[in-house]
Measured scan of single mutants.
Amino acid sequence: ITGDVSAANKDAIRKQMDAAASKGDVETYRKLKAKLKGIR
């Protein structure tokens, strides 16, 4: 179950990262990237 949750989280975070990148929001992008590392 835990694996599914983190996989879903990663997917959601990647989508947020894409949105931040397209807006040029480097700050948010970095925060999300750090979150991704924390999940692993």
Rank of each mutant, 00 (worst) to 15 (best):
K35F: 14
T28Q: 08
E27K: 07
I39E: 05
V26P: 03
S22L: 14
N9Y: 15
V5C: 15
I13E: 01
G3I: 10
A20N: 01
R40E: 13
G24D: 03
L32W: 03
S6G: 09
K35L: 15
D4H: 13
A19Q: 07
I39D: 04
D25R: 00
R14M: 09
G38Q: 14
A19T: 06
V5M: 13
R30F: 07
S22H: 07
G38T: 11
V26R: 07
G38S: 12
K35Y: 13
D25T: 00
A21R: 14
T28V: 05
K33A: 12
K10C: 15
E27M: 05
I13P: 01
D11W: 05
I39F: 13
L32S: 00
K10S: 09
K10F: 15
A12R: 07
A8Y: 10
I13S: 01
R14I: 09
K37M: 13
R40N: 13
D4G: 10
D18V: 14
I39T: 05
K23I: 14
S6L: 13
N9I: 15
Q16V: 03
T2M: 10
Y29E: 00
M17D: 00
K35Q: 10
A19L: 14
G38D: 07
V26Q: 07
E27G: 02
S6Q: 11
K35G: 01
A19S: 05
G3V: 12
G38Y: 12
G3A: 09
M17K: 01
D11I: 11
A19R: 06
K15P: 01
K10V: 15
G24E: 02
A8Q: 09
A34H: 05
E27W: 04
Y29A: 02
V5H: 09
G3P: 09
K33D: 01
M17H: 01
I13K: 02
K35I: 15
S22D: 06
T2F: 12
G38N: 12
I39A: 07
D18E: 14
V5L: 12
A12G: 06
E27H: 05
T2N: 10
K33W: 12
V26G: 03
R40I: 14
K35N: 01
I39Y: 08
I1S: 10
N9M: 15
D18L: 15
R40S: 13
D4N: 10
T28L: 15
D18T: 12
D11Q: 11
D11M: 14
A20V: 01
D11V: 09
K31T: 04
D4L: 12
G24Y: 03
K10P: 10
K10M: 15
T28W: 07
K31F: 05
A8D: 12
I39M: 13
K33I: 06
D18F: 15
L36Q: 01
T28D: 02
D11P: 04
Q16G: 04
Y29P: 00
T2G: 13
D4K: 10
M17N: 02
Q16A: 14
A12H: 08
G3K: 10
T2E: 08
A7D: 08
L36R: 03
Y29H: 01
K23L: 07
V5Q: 09
A34Q: 07
M17L: 04
A34T: 04
A21G: 03
K33F: 11
T2I: 10
N9T: 14
K33Q: 08
K23D: 05
Y29I: 03
